[in-house]
Every structure is written in structure tokens, then in C-alpha cells.
Amino acid sequence: MSKFFYGIEDLFVNYLFAPLDFFRFMDSWWGANSINWIFMIIGFVAMVYWMGQLKIFNESGEEDKSISSHSYL
């Protein structure tokens, strides 16, 4: 069973996270954290889009908001 976990370690350390080793040795803080900022911007844009979609469906009045909408309630 230990070989299974060593295989998972090898996959992540040597293959999937290998491109991130480039950012570890940069002298610039902004350069090293650029990938984090990109993910934060993508997440923020996705959240704004999702909130906009929720607002559209909330204003259209399509959803059944009654308390007895489910049989177990």
C-alpha cells in the first residue's frame, strides 16, 4: 500500500507541480505570486457572474419559494 502513496507523491511532486518550481526561485514577489493573482481574478469574475445570474433568476420570479415546496418540510 505504501507504493500507492509514493506513486501519488511522485505524480504531484515531479509532474503536476513541477512548473510551479520556476516561480519559487524568482526574485520578484509580484512575479512569484502572479499565478495566485490570476486565480484570484478568475475567482472574482466567476463570483460576480454567478451573483448576476442569481439576481436575474430571483427577479424573474420563476422559483417556487414556498415553505412546503418539498414533501419532507
Rank of each mutant, 00 (worst) to 15 (best):
F39R: 02
S28K: 09
S69H: 07
G7Q: 03
I8P: 00
F12L: 09
I56A: 04
Y49K: 12
K3F: 03
G52Y: 06
L20P: 01
N36E: 14
S28F: 04
N58L: 13
Y15F: 15
R24S: 09
S69A: 12
F44M: 10
Y6R: 14
N58Y: 12
D21I: 12
K3C: 03
D27I: 12
S69P: 00
Y72I: 13
S69M: 09
A18I: 06
W50N: 08
I42A: 11
V45G: 04
K65C: 05
L11F: 09
I42R: 01
R24E: 13
D21Y: 13
A32Y: 05
F12T: 07
I56D: 06
F23V: 03
D21K: 04
G52T: 13
S2P: 05
L16H: 07
S68N: 15
K55M: 11
M47P: 00
E63V: 14
I41P: 02
D64Q: 06
S71V: 11
I38M: 08
D10P: 00
K3R: 10
V48W: 00
S60P: 02
D10E: 12
M51H: 08
G61F: 07
M47E: 06
V48I: 15
D64C: 07
N36F: 01
G7W: 04
E62H: 14
S60E: 15
E62I: 00
I42P: 03
E62A: 01
D27Q: 04
F22S: 02
E59M: 12
F17P: 00
A18S: 10
Y49M: 14
L54W: 10
W29R: 10
L20F: 12
F39M: 13
D10V: 04
I8G: 02
D64N: 15
D10H: 03
G61S: 03
G31F: 00
G61W: 02
G31N: 11
F39E: 01
S2Y: 09
L54I: 11
W37D: 00
A32C: 04
N33Y: 11
S69F: 12
S2I: 09
E9G: 02
R24V: 12
Y6L: 10
I38P: 01
S68W: 07
Y6I: 01
M40Y: 07
A32N: 13
D64Y: 05
F4Y: 14
I35K: 01
Y15E: 04
M40H: 03
G61M: 05
F39T: 04
Y15Q: 03
N58F: 12
G31H: 08
I67A: 03
L11P: 03
S69W: 07
F12G: 04
S66I: 03
F23A: 09
G61I: 11
I38A: 09
A18N: 05
L20Y: 06
V45P: 00
S71Y: 05
W50C: 06
S60D: 14
I42D: 01
S60T: 08
D10L: 07
W30E: 05
F17D: 06
Y49T: 14
F12N: 11
W37H: 00
I8L: 15
D10T: 13
I35C: 07
M26W: 06
F4G: 02
A18Q: 07
N36V: 04
S60A: 12
H70K: 01
S71T: 11
K65A: 08
I35T: 10
S71P: 02
A46S: 08
G61Y: 04
I67Y: 10
A46Y: 09
Y6K: 14
E62L: 00
A32I: 00
I67S: 06
